[in-house]
Design a binder for these strands. Structure first.
Length: 269
DNA sequence: CACCAGGTCCGTT
DNA sequence: AACGGACATGGT
């Protein structure tokens, strides 16, 4: 049975939460979004003062956790406003952003694909990956594909991943999927950079988006721009820029990073 | 047509 | 430890 839950939109907005770059498994639908997570799917739509979550009844608890609905975001948002400057502006624009609790393997694969790549192309490649190796499902009259398991991904070779558009990242996917299928741990304590094709930035994204380690501040080309243009930074290395933000923002680093990413990417014209 | 995109690896200093 | 080129591919 499909069910719809209603939430206050103020700190839970569909558009900003989906478009702030944390997930690649979405499509616009019915004035909102059709979202995939692992084997499940849901619809998320904001209108007026409300946000509506539609999912199979048995999946409601899963998505309640997925959208991090047990956490008070007014304190986080308030702390960002107090910082002033670009961060305060970013927080106003992204007031309804929440950080999702995504599945570790899925997050790892998606962010391996994200490196040196465009978001539209990442989404398309993830879509082809699911269509090829996932299982067909249906939700609210829409066909979708689940995210493949590490075991299923481990059965394919690099040629396959090049064929779906992974480019030079194909070998990264093969080796990482096989390691995990063969029993390598993927938990909050795993040293993620030991996986082939996973550097500090991808590791930080997995830590933040799958394990909710909000003391992490992933630095990519957009956050480099923020650092230079909005914080007057002069350091060149990403390690130094990451250190700058994580020292400054502490436990709120991950939340503030999402405000800033959304703000910077939206203001590209 | 260069240049860039949610970087990482690897060989040189 | 730090730096720079190579790496696939499609959009601007």
């Amino acid at each position: 049975m499909v069910e719809t839950e209603t939430f206050a939109r103020e700190y839970f907005d569909a558009e900003s939460s989906v478009m702030c770059g944390q997930t690649f498994r979405y499509a616009r639908a019915d004035g909102g979004f059709f979202l995939g997570s692992g084997r499940r799917a849901c619809l998320l739509r904001s209108e007026g003062e409300h946000t509506f979550l539609t999912a199979n009844e048995e999946d409601i608890p899963y998505f309640t956790d997925y959208f991090d609905l047990g956490r008070d975001y007014s304190r986080i948002h308030g702390a960002a406003l107090k910082e002033g400057g670009a961060l305060a502006s970013a927080a106003e624009k992204g007031k309804g952003i929440r950080i999702f609790n995504q599945q570790p393997f899925e997050t790892l694969v998606c962010f391996i694909l994200s490196q040196n790549n465009h978001i539209p192309r990442i989404r398309a490649t993830v879509g082809r990956l699911c269509a090829a190796l996932g299982e067909r499902g249906e939700f609210c009259g829409r066909e979708y594909f689940t995210f493949p398991s590490s075991e299923r991904m481990a059965q394919e070779d690099a040629e396959f991943y090049r064929k779906i558009g992974a480019g030079y990242r194909a070998e990264y996917l093969v080796r990482t999927a096989r390691e995990i299928a063969d029993g390598a741990e993927l938990s909050p304590r795993t040293k993620l950079t030991d996986f082939y094709g996973v550097g500090q930035k991808v590791a930080d994204c997995v830590s933040l988006f799958a394990f909710h380690k909000t003391e992490r501040f992933p630095v990519d080309t957009w956050l480099e721009k923020v650092y230079r243009e909005d914080f007057g930074g002069t350091e060149k290395s990403r390690a130094a820029i990451t250190r700058f933000f994580e020292t400054k923002f502490g436990e709120n680093s991950g939340y503030f990073q999402q405000y800033l990413f959304y703000y910077k990417r939206k203001s590209r014209e």
